[in-house]
């Protein structure tokens, strides 16, 4: 009883579950809802506002002009589709390299090599976003390494173009695909491989019929990262894409000139990501992330 008298706060909290939960949740919720969700809601509201074409000043209204432009403007539409295509290509490319890498690491490499490769894939994650984009710039610039190195063979590089954007985004997000895929392959019980071999399956058949189905959850989990990170990016397009534009470029270019259009466009990648998540949710892969 003495503790109740001398430690009133502790005692009060100890008695009331609601008070304990409240004292833990209030600050994070005030921050996330009060600052972030309110900001997102205000941004969505801005999409319906009216903009003065001369001063770029917005006034509260309820009109669908911005959304109409989004659908009717050919350039906007093709940019959305291009961005979607880039994000899907990056995802497929990452998976295409992550699977053989994972199989090699888990099934062929020696323990030392396995450890080395695990660190080697993780290390670039820390090297910094712009550092990696700079690395791609240095590699593919007009008089840079790629053109000079492969020029001997008569091959000229992609320069700063859409393929370079795809390569750069793959470069940036590949580890997010490679790590879950490798982990998943390692977790496949060894006797499954033995059984497959005993039943007469060759290596390729085993990979196709045993490894691939068990790999789906990891591939989907990885693809959520590669897909949504690529979809929202526009810095790569700006720095290595030449004239390539992505959804983010339109948002960034319009935020001061035409805020309603920028606001409406901000919800395009969000819609794509939500649709993608809903599509993958049925597989149950996300619960394991």
């Amino acid at each position: 009883m003495t503790s109740t008298a001398t430690k009133p706060v502790s005692a009060l909290l100890y008695r009331s579950r609601r008070l304990r939960l409240g004292s833990l949740l209030t600050l994070p919720l005030v921050w996330l809802v009060g600052l972030y969700i309110v900001s997102l809601a205000l941004l969505l509201a801005t999409a319906f506002w009216r903009v003065d074409p001369f001063t770029s000043k917005v006034t509260p209204a309820f009109q669908f002009d911005a959304f109409e432009q989004l659908l009717s403007n050919q350039a906007y539409l093709s940019t959305s589709l291009r961005t979607l295509g880039i994000a899907l290509t990056v995802t497929l490319l990452s998976a295409a390299f992550a699977i053989p890498l994972g199989i090699y690491m888990a099934k062929i490499a020696s323990p030392w090599m396995r450890g080395f490769l695990a660190v080697a894939i993780t290390l670039p994650l820390w090297a910094g976003y712009l550092v990696k984009i700079l690395a791609m710039r240095v590699t593919f610039t007009e008089e840079g390494f790629f053109n000079s190195f492969f020029g001997v063979l008569g091959i000229s590089g992609p320069g700063f173009s859409q393929p370079t954007v795809v390569l750069t985004l793959t470069y940036l997000w590949f580890p997010y695909m490679a790590l879950p895929v490798y982990t998943a392959i390692r977790q496949i019980p060894v006797n499954l491989f033995d059984a497959s071999a005993d039943l007469g399956a060759r290596g390729w058949t085993t990979v196709r019929t045993v490894v691939m189905p068990l790999l789906m959850p990891a591939l989907i989990a990885g693809s959520v990262f590669t897909f949504s990170l690529s979809l929202g990016d526009y810095i790569a397009a700006e720095l290595v894409g030449g004239r390539t534009q992505m959804i983010g470029s339109i948002i960034a270019n319009n935020i001061n000139l035409n805020p309603p259009v920028a606001a409406a466009f901000a919800f395009v990648p969000v819609a794509f990501v939500v649709l993608y998540l809903l599509g993958t949710r049925r597989t149950g892969a996300l619960e394991r992330m």
Binding site: S39, L40, L42, L43, D233, I255, A266
Partner: peptide
Amino acid sequence: ALPGVVTGVAFSNT
């Protein structure tokens, strides 16, 4: 989970 450009634009708008 949301693209950085969405978060950034939302805050700058506010």
